[in-house]
């Protein structure tokens, strides 16, 4: 009865209030579940940022007399807290510096492929017609080429190195974003507010950036989070195939690949970087799952 008597304005007001409350509740629930993951990720990011100050030793300094030392050994006054690798380098320092490489590769390749893929996908979904045909066929073409092939070609033509690893990863992964952005844009392009904006003379760029991008961001962030873990794993696989970041630069993937030969005798070489890599990928993937639930209206 009281609700019926209340003026319509108040009703809208309270509905808005309720929506806001629900949104806040969802955010709180998300954070309450995500904080351990965010803590792990922050720790890894901090390690990467401050690697030179945290690492006890030079990650590149070899000591052929102190190879394959077990964790806690001391050789010539150098304490190997996590042991030493196949060239007598301090594993702890390499693991800390390795965070830089792994994060840098993953972040830059996700950003690059995300930006390229989203742009192309939105264009295809909004403009339709021949841009749509060309772009979507191009995604099919790129999805059909083995990533390893592109990696080898990039290394052979452009030369090896960190930048090229990122390029290869971006080159092979942009179609994922393009497809998601395309499908979402397609669904939105006839939404009333987009039509209104177009009617009022909004330019394509304006509409894409102001009206469409903010609304498809959620889906894209979920893809990017899940892709992030894949990028870390992919960089590791490239190292295993000898096409990754150049030695002696420490990357978790390369350390893990080198450590495979020592699993039975010097487990620490692969287990410590492997554990870090595992934590990073796991945390990102779980975060991706949480974000997916967070953005999924059916699960609210």
């Amino acid at each position: 009865m009281t609700a019926a008597l209340a003026p319509p304005q108040d009703e809208a007001q309270s509905e808005l209030q309720a929506l806001k409350r629900a949104a806040r509740a969802r955010r709180v629930r998300f954070l309450s579940r995500a904080w351990p993951l965010l803590a792990i990720l922050s720790a890894l990011v901090l390690a990467a940022l401050f690697a030179p100050w945290i690492a006890p030793n030079d990650p590149l300094r070899q000591n052929l007399m102190g190879r394959l030392q077990a964790p806690g050994s001391e050789v010539r006054g150098v304490l190997y807290l996590l042991g030493s690798d196949e060239l007598g380098r301090d594993l702890l320092s390499r693991v800390i510096h390795g965070a830089r490489v792994s994060l840098l590769v993953a972040i830059s390749s996700v950003l690059l492929s995300g930006v390229v893929g989203t742009t192309l996908g939105m264009i295809a979904g909004y403009l339709r017609g021949w841009p749509e045909r060309i772009i979507m066929r191009l995604t099919d073409v790129f999805l059909s080429i083995p990533a390893i092939l592109l990696a080898i070609i990039a290394v052979a033509v452009l030369g090896p190195g960190l930048v090229n690893v990122v390029l290869v990863l971006a080159l092979t992964r942009w179609p994922r974003y393009a497809r998601v952005a395309y499908a979402q844009t397609l669904a939105l392009s006839n939404a009333p507010y987009v039509r209104l904006s177009r009617f009022m003379g909004g330019g394509t760029v304006h509409i894409l950036l102001r009206h469409i991008l903010p609304n498809i961001m959620g889906a894209l962030i979920v893809v990017a989070t899940l892709e992030f873990g894949l990028m870390v794993l992919f960089e590791a696989s490239l190292s295993f195939l000898g096409l990754g970041v150049q030695p002696p630069t420490p990357s978790w993937g390369a350390m893990l690949a080198a450590g495979r030969d020592y699993v039975a005798t010097a487990w620490w070489i692969s287990v410590f970087p492997g554990f870090c890599l595992f934590l990073l990928v796991l945390a990102m993937n779980l975060l991706g799952d949480l974000l997916r639930d967070h953005f999924d209206p059916r699960l609210r």
Partner: peptide, 11 residues
Amino acid sequence: VVAAQSLPTFW
């Protein structure tokens, strides 16, 4: 489940 896919297969 996610942990199972968080390690590179070569390892």
